[in-house]
Design a protein around this nucleic acid. Structure first.
Lengths: 345, 345
DNA sequence: ATGAAAGCGCTAACAA
DNA sequence: TTGTTAGCGCTTTCAT
């Protein structure tokens, strides 16, 4: 194994990188002066400035983010706090990142729940550990609990139920669910089932509510036996679909609270030889890539995840500038593909 | 706007969060004792321990990552350094994150190129700023330059040309390109063009090399006029495709260095009324989602991005444990979809 | 215009 | 068993 230049022993022990003291020594000035030059403060002779800059370039010095953010109040960095880099979080991050370009902030995505199994409360830990020094503000992705009493501005993406007093961004789950259900109604369906999500999550509550509203708006009867809990899980949805199809008067269409649940419905149709959409219409929510490659491709309600991220970034910036909190909702889009069709004759 | 508990004025000024001193005061001990309790050091009376723990819980204290990593040598955190959260980087991160679960490390993805326009050299800056204190090691995504003389172990994903002396992970671009070309040859094609990528990148060089090798292995003539530079860009590829099809003896198949280039070929076929694959076979590289929804869906060489991430994590861990550097190559997969077929009669 | 000194929050070494 | 001291790298007064 070749030794990189500048590393003495090929191992990476306590080597600390080049510090402000190294630059000061090289330039023959004090660390304070180097700091002034680095931060463009007034009161440094241009000759000294040049000497320091030369030393900085020669040594490849960059101020340690840790040390400077510890001393300063602001680090110019916005934190994105998440439990793990799942597809939802990463799509939102792409939106944050795109919006952040050229705005003068660095982005730092921190996944602090990976180390220990403390699943609940990771967001509090992450905020405490990074807040106030390393990051000036945080965008928290789908937290498990209410966050309160933080020292920095927080924007919550996909908030838990009951969190309306702080800044939040989420898809318009209510309108999306209404549109999904209305789509089935427009196709002539009258007996429409709903496989709902995790009832402890606000998103699932709103999607169910949208379903109920759409039925009411169309003056269609609401049959409680047609709503089962799939908990956003494919395996649970399989059970739900079986029960639904075993009903004496089964539904002709199912609105699934998410695409994973819809996949479960596909499974059951395959096992029973039911054709989609001829025998049963299926609509999902989220628009995951897996839905595209299904046969037929899944009709679903797409979330605009990058837009959620962009909104989150704009909101956190405005809060950093002294602006107030807000609760933002992002429009969804009906993706009419192959899994929904007219009611069977 | 409601005021979160614990924040005095509704604004988030210099509020610093709860420190070790607050806990010490609350428990009636010294900060050092609190530190010992937090880090499970021996030599603390169990009564004191209980008192400190109670104070910690009451105040919701978590040690500042910045302060502790500044004092310690290790922070237990692995950094993922990137220019921005693009699709390539995020897919790899998913793999890193999945592999990191339960291994006792935190993950910190830092995008330091967003703030200023210093496109080249962002990786050096990020390493200097975070290395040695905030992160114990770094996985650097597609750097623009050679990295050398770092104080911490570095693994490079998708390295630039000429970087073989340090730890690297990349797709097996050579074998993938060979397989793509061979696929076309097996279909009976003899006149196969190549729209190559950015010639300054190692990946593009290897893909072109694989194309040439496959031709040689099949004892097919290599015609330099059939290789044009698309620079991984759709618009450039459009020009390339036009030139290729205007040739007196045009190719019957095109191997594109990436899927974006293949999209450009699709554009040209549409504008000229050429059918894919009846009139022209097209194969790409990367397997981006956009390729799935094309008509016909794009045949391509899929990179196993999550596997690249997982390998990167494993390698960096082994280096942290004193292991040596390595150059790892990850297998690609031919995705035979609709855009390649037998040579036109 | 420059440098000395203090201190951000934490931990390791040492003293009591 | 506990507390005191020093210092990580940096920035910010405040002297000089």
């Amino acid at each position: 194994m070749p030794v990189p230049d500048g590393v003495a022993n090929g191992q990476f022990t306590s080597q600390r990188g080049v510090t402000i003291h190294d630059v000061a020594r090289e330039a023959g000035v004090s660390p304070a002066t180097v700091s002034k030059v680095m931060n463009n403060r007034y009161g440094v002779a241009s000759a000294t400035q040049a000497r320091v800059k030369a030393a900085v370039t020669k040594l490849g010095y960059e101020a340690s983010l840790v040390a400077s953010s510890m001393r300063r109040s602001s680090s110019n960095t916005i934190g994105v706090l998440l439990a793990g880099f799942d597809p939802f979080a990463t799509e939102v991050i792409k939106g944050i990142s795109a919006e952040a370009v050229g705005k003068g902030y660095e982005l730092l995505a921190y996944s602090g729940a990976i180390a220990d199994e403390r699943a609940v409360g990771w967001e509090h830990r992450s905020i405490q550990r990074l807040g106030g020094s390393l990051i000036d503000a945080a965008i928290v992705m789908t937290p498990t609990i209410r966050i309160s009493g933080t020292a920095i501005p927080i924007v919550t993406v996909d908030p838990p139920a009951g969190l309306t007093d702080s800044a939040t961004i989420a898809s318009d789950n209510l309108a999306g669910a209404r549109e999904a259900t209305k789509h089935l109604i427009d196709l002539g369906h009258v007996r429409i089932a709903h496989i709902r999500g995790r009832t402890d999550l606000l998103s699932a509550q709103l999607r169910e509510q949208g379903y109920v509203q759409a039925l009411a708006e169309a003056r269609l009867p609401y049959d409680p036996s047609l709503t089962l809990t799939g908990a956003y899980r494919r395996d649970w949805a399989v059970d739900c679909a079986r029960k639904l199809l075993d009903l004496p008067y089964p539904p002709t269409a199912i609105f699934c609270a998410n695409d994973w649940s819809a996949l479960g419905v596909y499974d059951v149709c395959a096992e029973r030889g039911l054709r989609i959409p001829e025998d049963l219409s299926v609509i999902g929510f989220d628009d995951i890539p897996e839905g595209h490659v299904l046969a037929p491709p899944l009709t679903t309600i797409a979330q605009n995840l990058p837009e959620i991220g962009a909104d989150a970034f704009r909101l956190i910036r405005s809060m950093l500038d002294g602006g107030g909190s807000d609760n933002i909702t992002v429009a969804t889009t009906l993706m009419h593909r192959g899994s929904t069709g007219p009611v069977p004759a």
